[in-house]
Design a protein around this nucleic acid. Structure first.
Lengths: 176, 176
DNA sequence: CTGTATATTCAGTTTGTACTGAAAGGACAG
DNA sequence: CTGTCCTTTCAGTACAAACTGAATATACAG
């Protein structure tokens, strides 16, 4: 893995770009991309060299990937260094990330909306309007939460079944 | 709307924070929050004052919201200024944003993956492994695209029906 | 036309996040 | 223990994105 192939380079750079667009640090995303493509676990130093970033930067980035649960340290016989490897199951990887982003971002937003709804001062002008808007937004987030809870518990295969079912319902609706 | 109520402040600040976490400019998100809560369309200057940002900043931010299609300019009789209002249908708003983020981010990633798969050099060591990993990732993105296409064409009510159906299937699966 | 009100553009500045390298902190072989 | 190898922490720096305000463009009333 010392030298990257053209394809690897392309994938890693793109993945880094995607990361930034979704609020994920570029280097963190690049390291993940590198590990995902790597057939064997890599030591931090090799990651740093391959991506041309500081060793310490790799350390913190790896830590973040570990908190997501999509990268873990493994030990190689006869080597004192930690080697890092990425989870390879793509669906599971995204499930983990989505679950955590929901916890970190969706859930607090739901709470904020509830708090706001409770705090609307009825004496304030336009209180009804504010409640209406906040309520609509809250409803949406509740639905998203419901959807997520479903997905979380469905095995991958069932998601695919639902996809097919959706197709049928859509076709039927069009005929009606 | 000159002075914000406590609830409005809370909502706008939180929404700005959420924006940044998803790669959306804080001010852009705040302006959207303000317009979403506002019962009437607001002129740029009032937005700037209310949020304490430069008039020019509002101009560019509004432009971005317009490209998303979730804010539009309206005219008020006897006023030369443009007034801006947010779409109020939350589901439609998110549908628009998701559709465009898919176009800007998911689609290019799919293309990148296809290109990579085509470019894998069979002579290179580990070519099979690389293809396997790229293929798995590509499969995921294809599924996401499929899911999106379904959602896009389903009326909101049908999404809810699917949610309920999922619940039943899950309960059944648990019994089995 | 001219003058005024409004909107946009853009060069320069600010700000916050990411990154580096040096120092400190572990772990372990000998 | 001691020295070596590796990891983590952190203060300072670099950099990119966001923001400002002045200059410019545009629209329109008179």
């Amino acid at each position: 893995m010392a030298e990257l192939t053209g394809v690897q380079k392309q994938y890693i750079l793109h993945w880094g770009e995607m990361g930034t667009r979704w609020g994920i640090n570029r280097t963190v995303a690049q390291i993940h991309a590198l590990l995902y493509l790597s057939p064997k676990a890599l030591p931090a130093e090799e990651i740093a060299e391959t991506l041309s970033v500081a060793r310490s930067n790799v350390s913190t980035s790896i830590r973040e990937l570990e908190t997501w649960g999509i990268v873990r340290a493994v030990h190689v016989l006869g080597d004192r260094r930690e080697h890092y490897e990425s989870m390879k199951d793509v669906w599971e990887m995204f499930r983990l990330v989505i679950e955590q982003r929901k916890r970190r971002e969706i859930d607090p937003t739901r709470e904020m909306l509830r708090r706001c709804l409770a705090d609307v001062d009825p004496k304030e002008a336009g209180a009804d309007y504010t409640r209406e808007r906040l309520g609509a937004m809250a409803g949406f987030f509740e639905a998203v939460t419901e959807l997520h809870d479903q997905m979380k518990q469905l095995p991958t295969g069932t998601v695919r079944k639902l996809l097919r079912m959706g197709t049928k319902m859509r076709k039927k609706a069009r005929r009606d």
